[in-house]
């Protein structure tokens, strides 16, 4: 589904990604862990198409298509979704209007036609109830004044509604209380399917008890320095990143 080959990216001359290779097959769940500043969010933004980054080398294929040539909305329409570490507040755009516009824009781009308002409402109601997103939050401007946890739940609501093929979750667990973590994880797990892949960026092994990964990667200084099964996360929890940071410093 996703093939990242030798990806290099920089911002204003600072090299941030320095040769990422990563393949995620359909139905797989991959986790990326790594110290602060190692480039995890940068990778997620580059995948989603944020244009602050200059790609100096490498390629990204999504179901065989060259993602780097697509605009963010085109990437979304082919099934890429990024639940952001810091969801953005948009004053003046009602959450509900936003959800409907996004869903219909994607449907139209895929030639599926717009969803009728009653069908849309029904779907949103159902999903928001599961994710504990209140009607009030749907009426309010997008993310404005939402608490950290509310923003994260709202990201997962968008994901559930848009039904992407690849879900990238950037620290969706940060800032969630214990109950919210369970709600969000259930929401994510409900989306698991043999056709859908996930890339979960996290600092905490705890999340991976709920969303169990097939592969865990360690990212450091813009590279994937180690990959393993879910036990790798447990080892990291215990020993930290000294092994990698030490090596790199040497």
């Amino acid at each position: 589904m996703l093939e990242i080959k030798n990806l290099h990216a920089e911002v204003e001359g600072n090299k941030i990604l320095r040769g990422i290779d990563l393949t995620i097959n359909a139905g797989e769940i991959h986790a990326i862990m790594g110290p602060n500043g190692s480039g995890k969010s940068t990778l997620s933004y580059v995948l989603a198409g944020k244009d602050d980054y200059e790609i100096t080398e490498g390629e990204i294929l999504f179901n065989g298509e060259n993602v780097l040539e697509m605009e963010p909305h085109e990437r979304a329409a082919v099934g890429l979704f990024l639940a952001m570490q810091y969801p953005i507040e948009i004053p003046g755009v009602a959450n509900m209007t936003f959800l409907k516009t996004a869903l219909n824009a994607q449907r139209v781009a895929r030639g599926e036609g717009e969803l009728k308002t009653p069908d849309f409402m029904k779907k949103v109601k159902e999903l928001s109830a599961k994710l504990n997103v209140t009607q009030e939050m749907l009426r309010r401007p997008l993310n404005v004044g939402f608490s950290g946890g509310e923003k994260k739940r709202n990201e997962i609501l968008q994901m559930a509604l848009l039904e992407p093929k690849l879900c990238i979750l950037d620290e969706t667990d940060s800032g969630l209380d214990i109950d919210a973590l369970r709600i969000v994880s259930d929401g994510v797990n409900a989306l698991k399917s043999p056709e859908r892949s996930m890339l979960v960026i996290t600092h905490y092994q705890r999340l991976l008890n709920y969303i169990v990964p097939d592969v865990v990667h360690v990212m450091y200084q813009g590279k994937i320095v180690k990959s393993g099964d879910k036990d790798l996360a447990l080892q990291l929890e215990e020993k930290g990143y000294a092994e990698f940071t030490g090596e790199a410093a040497a």
């Binding site: 989603a48 198409g49 944020k50 244009d51 605009e71 963010p72 909305h73 990437r75 979304a76 329409a77 979704f81 990024l82 952001m84 969801p87 953005i88 948009i90 004053p91 003046g92 755009v93 936003f98 516009t101 996004a102 869903l103 824009a105 994607q106 781009a109 401007p141 968008q158 848009l162």
Partner: peptide, 25 residues
């Protein structure tokens, strides 16, 4: 640009996203 990117990443084309932000403003 960050707002445009956020809307874009949800599938909303730039032209439409711009109009939404003008309306919101």
């Amino acid at each position: 640009e960050d707002l445009l990117f956020y809307l874009g990443s949800r599938g909303i084309p730039k032209d439409l996203a711009k109009k939404m932000l003008v309306m919101a403003f």
